[in-house]
């Protein structure tokens, strides 16, 4: 399996990461190396195995429905790159 440049562009777009110029060839090579290795997963011994999502053999614990957080907006928004009137600002979103 080998990744084409178009596929790489699609993936980059999904991940919102730009891949430009000098970087693409090396990147494709690295990605292809990993995907080559992934061929090991075609091993037929895996066919009958139940996928394992998590190493912890436990079930989800449920939290009581109580409000435990108070307004910490000032603290939580201190690191916002752009804000006004308690809102995070982003370039205009066109719906």
């Amino acid at each position: 399996m080998s990744l084409t440049n178009d596929q790489l562009q699609d993936v980059a777009n999904l991940a919102r990461i730009s891949v430009e110029d000098g970087w693409t060839d090396g990147l494709r090579r690295d990605l292809n190396a990993i995907l080559d290795q992934a061929r090991l997963l075609d091993d037929p011994r895996l066919d009958a195995i139940e996928p394992m999502a998590h190493p912890l053999d436990q079930t989800q614990r449920l939290r009581a429905d109580t409000v435990s957080e108070t307004d910490q907006r000032v603290t939580m928004m201190a690191a916002a790159p752009a804000q006004e009137g308690g809102l995070f600002l982003v370039p205009k979103v066109i719906e």
């Binding site: 997963l41 091993d43 996928p51 394992m52």
Partner: peptide, 15 residues
């Protein structure tokens, strides 16, 4: 299915 799911199966194999 080809990647993620197979990898999860491998995870159990190794475990």
């Amino acid at each position: 299915d080809a990647f993620y799911r197979r990898a999860q199966m491998a995870r159990r194999l190794v475990t």
